[in-house]
Nucleic acid binder design. Structure first.
Length: 411
RNA sequence: GCGACCAUAGCUCAGCUGGUUAGAGCGCCGGUUUGUGGUACCGGAGGUCGCGGGUUCGAACCCCGUUGGUCGCCCCA
């Protein structure tokens, strides 16, 4: 019989088991706990949206929209897209459900996102993010709260040491447009010296030239005008209030006037928490203010701020979590006593202890296997000289004594 | 989308300038230490050398293609 070729996983997807899966869920657990401390409500939005939701909010010319989306026509002929990010879908939900009645609304979510990219370290086609948004607040305090939340999350995950907060402002629409105009003029004047990549950026996303890594671009980018000269007084005040708030709250930050965002909807505050421990994908958490987005999508004018963080990237930074400790293990040395073993397992688990039994392999090796499991208490269940033998071995610790007691009292 | 490197047992890997039946450790299965014992020892199963083609008397090894992985570019969290 011909053996069929086993299916391969879709490129850029990953199966997780054991250590990495534990780290992944640890990140999510901590996020869920910290999010409550800041009063963020859990929100769930669909994995699929009409393509227009993303095309109109992220910007038609961005790479994400123009070449990285998983879009398809459904059976009714509508263009549907697997979400490449959270913000646009949450903005859409805000409009669809009239959530302005709850403004200012603090929401948090996490889940899978999809981008058709070349996989590499910290970058997958199906990847996962944490996400936090405050919708309907134009206060710089909202930005500060969100950054405090992010900062505490990273501290509680134990990764804050290698990570720095880089902060910039893109100004309000007026400031941003003026600055953008000046940048285009500056770069156009040096067109001949720019890298090929930057020449296409000049048309599509000129601000992106600022953080180019190409050595040919660096001198030109470094000589480019700063946003500061173009900030309106209101934009300046806003940024000042954000930085003052961070200082008061004790959140360390660095001004990076070259930090820009790839998506079109950002205004005012832009930030990234960056590490050098992840190679090329060094941004672990990033976001900013997107005051114009909801109105762009046809909703009421609504100021908003948010961030997202890569769960895989955070999980990679985590120290290896301690192996999950099994409370009790049973070495079943005589199959005739299987019923006793099953009853004992049930008693232990009912009492709140994790338990497992070794019931396969040569009878003599079951004890060794059980011993290797590292459980706090090792029960052996066998028959010797026709009599049932039941023993417990443990290190005498408090929990171990409780486990043994639970096994014996319930008999 | 572009570039570099990689693909051998369930896992981690070795395999010389191309040369008999492709190896190790771990894991798995069985056995010995006739035993209250996390030890040690013996044995066994398990491989179309990612896939397809080519060169050669002969290919895991060289060439081409393909798929996947890794790391950069790009993009982004």
């Amino acid at each position: 019989m011909a053996k069929i070729a086993p299916p391969q996983p879709v490129r850029g997807t990953q199966d997780m088991l054991g250590d990495f899966a534990d780290r992944f869920s640890h990140v999510v657990d901590i996020f869920d706990r910290v999010r409550r401390l800041y009063g963020f409500k859990r929100v769930e939005v669909p994995v699929i949206e009409p393509t227009a939701v993303f095309a109109r909010s992220l910007g038609e010319t961005t790479d994400v929209v123009s070449k990285e989306m998983y879009s398809f026509a459904d059976r009714g002929g509508d263009s549907i897209t697997l979400r490449p990010e959270f913000t646009a879908g949450i903005a859409r939900a805000y409009i669809s459900n009239g959530w302005q009645q709850h403004a200012p609304l603090r929401v948090a979510t996490h889940g899978a996102l999809f981008r058709y990219e070349r996989p590499q370290k910290g970058r997958y086609r199906q990847f996962h993010q944490l996400d936090a948004e405050i919708l309907g607040s134009d206060s710089p305090l909202a930005d500060v709260e969100l950054l405090c939340f992010a900062d505490q999350l990273l501290r509680e995950l134990g990764v804050a040491d290698g990570v720095t907060l880089q902060l910039n402002t893109l100004g309000d629409a007026e400031s941003r447009d003026a600055w953008r105009g000046a940048l285009v003029a500056h770069f156009a004047a040096h067109r001949g010296a720019l890298s090929e990549d930057s020449l296409t950026r000049l048309d599509k996303n000129p601000m992106r030239i600022l953080d180019s890594k190409d050595p040919r671009d660096r001198p030109i980018a470094d000589a480019a005008p700063d946003i500061d000269a173009f900030l309106t007084p209101q934009a300046q005040d806003f940024f000042g209030a954000v930085t003052a708030g961070l200082d008061a709250a004790g959140v360390a930050w660095q001004r990076n006037s070259r930090l820009v965002r790839g998506l079109d909807y950002y205004r005012h505050t832009a930030f990234e928490f960056v590490t050098d421990r992840l190679g090329a994908q060094g941004t672990v958490l990033g976001g900013g203010r997107y005051d114009g987005l909801i109105e762009n999508l046809g909703g009421p004018p609504t100021p908003a701020v948010g961030w997202a963080a890569g769960i895989e990237r955070l999980a990679m930074l985590l120290d290896a979590p301690p192996p999950t400790q099994l409370d009790a293990v049973i070495a079943l040395e005589d199959d005739a006593l299987l019923g006793d073993a099953l009853a004992l397992l049930r008693r232990l688990r009912d009492a709140g202890y994790s338990a497992d039994a070794v019931t396969s392999g040569s009878p003599r090796k079951r004890f060794d296997k059980a011993a290797k499991s590292g459980a706090l208490v090792l029960f052996s269940l066998g028959t010797r000289d026709g009599a049932r033998q039941f023993n417990a071995r443990h290190d005498g610790g408090e929990r171990a004594i409780g486990i043994e007691a639970a096994a014996r009292t319930a008999r």
